[in-house]
Amino acid sequence: MMRLLIVALCIVSTYAGAQNPLRMLVTANANYYLPRNSGKQIYPILAYDGDADPKLLVGGFGLGFMIEQDVRNHIFWRAQINTSRRAYWDEVMLFNDVTGLPIGGAVCKGVDVVTNVTGAIHYKIGKSLSIGTGVGFDGLVYSYSRLPEKFIDNEVVRNSYYRPFVPLIPLELSVPIKRVLINLRYQHALINRLKSSIAEYEKDTYSALFIEVGYRIR
Rank of each mutant, 00 (worst) to 15 (best):
T205K: 03
R85V: 14
N183F: 01
F165W: 08
A208H: 02
G39D: 11
G100P: 01
A208Y: 04
A18T: 05
M2W: 02
P176D: 10
Y162Q: 11
L34G: 07
M66W: 02
P102R: 13
A18M: 12
G139P: 00
V141Y: 09
L101N: 14
K195T: 15
R85G: 06
S130V: 01
A120C: 09
E172R: 08
S128N: 12
L56V: 15
Q41Y: 03
L46D: 02
Y32T: 07
R85L: 14
Y206D: 08
A106D: 11
H122S: 04
D204R: 11
G50C: 03
A208V: 04
D70I: 04
N31T: 09
S143H: 05
T118V: 10
L5T: 10
D53W: 03
H74C: 06
I103M: 13
H74F: 05
Y162E: 09
Q41V: 04
Q19K: 15
L22D: 02
I45E: 04
A106Q: 08
E149Y: 04
F151S: 13
Y144G: 02
I81E: 05
N183H: 06
D204G: 07
T83F: 10
N192E: 01
N73E: 14
K178S: 15
Y123T: 10
T83M: 12
R72F: 10
I131Y: 02
K109R: 15
P21F: 11
K195F: 04
G139C: 05
Q69F: 05
K127G: 13
V111Q: 06
K40P: 01
R36H: 01
M66T: 06
L184Y: 08
A106M: 04
N82R: 07
I45A: 06
Q80I: 00
V166Q: 01
S128Y: 14
V117H: 00
S174Y: 00
A47S: 15
C108K: 05
G64A: 06
V157Y: 07
A16W: 01
Y162P: 00
N82H: 13
Y201Q: 09
R216I: 04
T115R: 12
L46H: 07
H188Y: 09
T115D: 08
V92C: 04
I121Q: 03
Q80K: 11
L147A: 07
E149W: 01
R36K: 12
P167K: 09
R158H: 13
Y161L: 11
D70Y: 03
P54I: 11
D153S: 14
Y201R: 10
